[in-house]
Design a protein around this nucleic acid. Structure first.
Length: 246
DNA sequence: GCGACAG
DNA sequence: ATCTTGTCGC
């Protein structure tokens, strides 16, 4: 029922092709609200150990009740060998494949997903949040903890709720949002099938007293837990080292 | 040529 | 991204 994802969208042969893919996929990003009632809010994040000789990346996809106090409804994890090293601007090619695997394991798919990382606030308009959203054709929001591209419009106020636009050549790429007093801001951007205004609203609505919205916060904890749990098993160096989790 | 550079 | 307890400040 779900179309297959083009091979190059997940595993381009080289960086030149990857860059080309990003431009193609960026053209498919929908920056308007295109989703129904959010009965389940998703959170996506990955975890890894720099020194893992197996180069594994653990992913977690969690589903929460948007109105709940953070109680996760479902959580799925997956692990894959890193397709490529980390290169700023190409994070999607490292994280999306394993995130897609975790997504497929969810029994019931979230209606909107908050991804840890930038969305459209990216050099070519395809941060990991857009990448995942377009690949799955699912509504996503990018919630990053630091800047990648563009510059803050002005000075950010100290109060929770204060915000400034992240701009580049007159275009608004994201909203730099103060979610907590005395905490660094988060960068909220369009992932897919949502407007920037709605993205910011959802992030604010998803806050539960921490710097990050509960969805990505829980995803972070789950990805970490998956790594610590599954990471104990001795990995086998095989030709096709593709693992699973749950 | 020199910085900047999500996770 | 991750290694890590207590501790200083609001």
């Amino acid at each position: 029922m779900h179309q297959d994802i083009p091979e190059d969208w997940l595993h381009p042969p080289d960086l030149a092709r990857a860059r080309q893919v990003q431009r193609e996929m960026a053209a498919r990003v929908v920056r308007e609200d295109a989703f129904g009632p959010v009965q389940r809010l998703g959170g996506a994040d990955t975890s890894l150990d720099r020194f893992d000789p197996a180069q594994r990346i653990f992913a977690a996809l969690v589903a929460l009740d948007p109105a709940g106090e953070g109680t996760g409804v479902e959580s799925q994890a997956a692990v894959l060998r890193a397709p490529m090293p980390y290169v700023p601007g190409f994070l999607g090619f490292r994280e999306v494949p394993v995130l897609v695997e975790a997504w497929r394991r969810l029994e019931r798919k979230p209606d909107l997903v908050m991804v840890d990382g930038h969305g459209a606030s990216h050099p070519r308009g395809l941060g990991v949040a857009c990448h995942l959203g377009v690949a799955l054709d699912v509504p996503t929001i990018g919630v990053a903890k630091s800047r990648l591209f563009g510059h803050p419009d002005g000075e950010l106020g100290p109060e929770p709720g204060d915000r400034v636009n992240l701009v580049h050549e007159g275009q608004v790429l994201a909203v730099v949002l103060r979610t907590r007093r005395r905490s660094n801001p988060v960068y909220v951007s369009v992932g897919h099938r949502i407007s920037l205004g709605s993205a910011v609203e959802w992030v604010q609505r998803g806050l539960r007293g921490y710097r990050l919205p509960e969805a990505t916060r829980q995803a972070h904890l789950a990805a970490n837990a998956a790594r610590l749990a599954l990471g104990m098993h001795a990995e086998k160096p095989g030709p096709a080292t593709e693992g699973r989790a749950t």
